[in-house]
Computed example of a mutant assay.
Amino acid sequence: MIALSVNLNKIALIRNSRDTTNPNIPQHAQMCIDAGANGITVHPRPDQRHIRVTDCFDLASMLHVEFNIEGNPMTGPRKTERSDVEDYPGFMALVKEIRPTQCTLVPDGDGQLTSDHGFDLKQDGEQVARLVQELQSLGIRTSLFMDPDPQQIRLAAQTGTDRVELYTETYARAFRTGDDLEHVFQQFVRAAEVAVDEGLGLNAGHDLDLNNLPRFATIAGLREVSIGHHLTVDAIRIGLADAVAAYQRALGTG
C-alpha cells in the first residue's frame, strides 16, 4: 500500500492571512486522518509564513499516525517581529525536540516560493551524511529530497539515509503539457529502480494531483506520497474528507 501523507502548509497559510486561529491546524489534521490519511506532513520555514513552530508542537502532541517534518537542515534560529509568533529555533533544533516519525531534508532557500530542486550530494554529501546520522541516532527515520537522477540517488544511499523523496515537478509539468511525457516518466521509473536496488525506501511529492497521481502510483517500490497544495484546492471544491478519499482512490488504496 502507498501511504498518503497530507501536507497542511496551505491550511496554515489560510489561517495566517487573518489574525485568527481558524482554520485550526490540529483539527484539520484529525479531519484528514478520520478521512483515511496515513500521515501528516508539515514544512516549517524560518519565516513561518504558513506552518509555525507552535503548530509543530501542537501536532506532535495529538498525532497517532506518521508525522513527517520537512525542511532545510542548514537553517538556524530566527527572531520574529510578531509578539504572537514564537521565534524559529532552527530546523534541526526543532526536529530534535519533537522527534517526528520521519524527517525529510530539503535544500530550499529563503527566496524560494516552494521547494524546486533536490540535493546535490556531490557537493553536500558529507554534511548531509552527518545530519542523517544525527537524526537516526534519535530514532527519526530520514528521507532526502532528490531529483530523479540515478547518480544522485546512489550518492544518497551512501549518506545512510533511510529513504529518498523524488521531486515530481518535472513529471507533473510533462503530464500537464504532454511534452515528452513518456521520457520524463521513465526517468522516474529508473530513479525508483535505482533507489530500490540501493535498499532505499521511496517517497515522492510536489504537484501531484488527482489527474497525474494514478499513473505515478504504478511506479514499483513507491511507499509514500506527500500532497498538500492540490489536495487543499480540491478540498475547497469538494470538501476535505472527500478530497482525502479521492486521493486514496487515485493511489489505488481507497
Score class of each variant (00 low, 15 high):
Gln48Ser: 08
Pro89Ile: 05
Asn72His: 13
Pro100Tyr: 01
Gly71Cys: 05
Gln102Glu: 06
Phe67Ala: 03
Arg82Glu: 10
Lys79Ser: 14
Val95Tyr: 04
Ser61His: 13
Asp108Trp: 01
Thr75Ala: 13
Cys56Lys: 04
Asp87Trp: 09
Pro107Gly: 00
Met62Lys: 12
Val53Trp: 05
Gly76Arg: 15
Arg52Asn: 03
Phe91Ala: 02
Thr104Gly: 04
Asp55Tyr: 05
Pro77Met: 13
Val95Asn: 00
Leu105Thr: 00
Val85Leu: 15
Gly90Pro: 04
Asp58Trp: 06
Asn72Pro: 06
Gly71Ile: 06
Ser61Arg: 14
Phe91Tyr: 08
Leu59Ala: 06
Lys96Leu: 04
Leu59Asn: 05
Glu86Ile: 05
Gln48Val: 03
Lys96Cys: 03
Leu94Ile: 03
Val53Tyr: 07
Gly90Arg: 05
Lys79Tyr: 13
Arg99Gly: 01
Arg49Ile: 03
Arg78Gly: 07
Glu66Thr: 09
Glu66Ile: 08
Asp87Leu: 12
Val85Asp: 06
Glu86Ser: 12
Arg52Ala: 06
Lys79Ile: 11
Pro73Thr: 09
Pro100Gln: 01
Phe91Thr: 01
Thr54Ala: 11
Gly90Cys: 02
Asp87Gln: 12
Arg52Val: 03
Ile98Cys: 10
Phe67Pro: 00
Gly90Val: 01
Gln102Leu: 06
Asp84Cys: 11
Ile51Trp: 05
Ile51Met: 08
Arg52Phe: 03
Phe57Tyr: 15
Val95Glu: 02
Ala60Arg: 11
Arg82Tyr: 12
Gln48His: 05
Thr80Asp: 14
Arg49Val: 00
Glu86Ala: 13
Asp47Arg: 09
Met92Leu: 12
Met92Phe: 07
Arg99Cys: 04
Arg99Trp: 01
Arg99Asp: 00
Asp55Thr: 06
Pro73Ile: 06
Ile98Trp: 06
Ile98Thr: 01
Ser83Met: 15
Gly90Leu: 02
Val95Ala: 04
Thr75Gln: 14
Glu66Tyr: 10
Leu59Thr: 00
Asp87Ala: 12
Thr104Ser: 07
Asp84Ile: 11
Cys56Thr: 03
Arg52Trp: 05
Leu105Ile: 02
Thr101Pro: 03
Gln102Pro: 00
Ser61Leu: 10
Ile98Met: 06
Ile69Val: 10
Arg49Asp: 08
Pro107Ala: 01
Arg82Trp: 14
Arg49Cys: 07
Thr75Ile: 14
Glu81Ser: 14
Leu63Tyr: 07
Asp55Ser: 07
Thr80Lys: 15
Met74Ala: 15
Pro100Phe: 01
Thr104Glu: 04
Ala93Gly: 06
Phe57Ile: 02
Tyr88Ser: 05
Phe67Gly: 01
Asp84Asn: 14
Thr80Ala: 11
Thr75Met: 13
Asp108Asn: 03
Pro89Tyr: 05
Thr80Arg: 14
Asp55Leu: 04
Ala60Gln: 08
Met62Arg: 13
Met92Pro: 03
Val65Thr: 12
Pro77Ser: 14
Gly76Phe: 07
Glu97Gln: 11
Pro73Glu: 11
His50Lys: 04
Gly71Asn: 09
Leu105Val: 00
Asp84Phe: 14
Pro73His: 10
Thr101Gly: 11
Ala60Asn: 09
Arg78Asp: 11
Leu105Met: 08
Glu66Met: 13
Pro77Cys: 10
Met74Trp: 14
Ile98Asp: 02
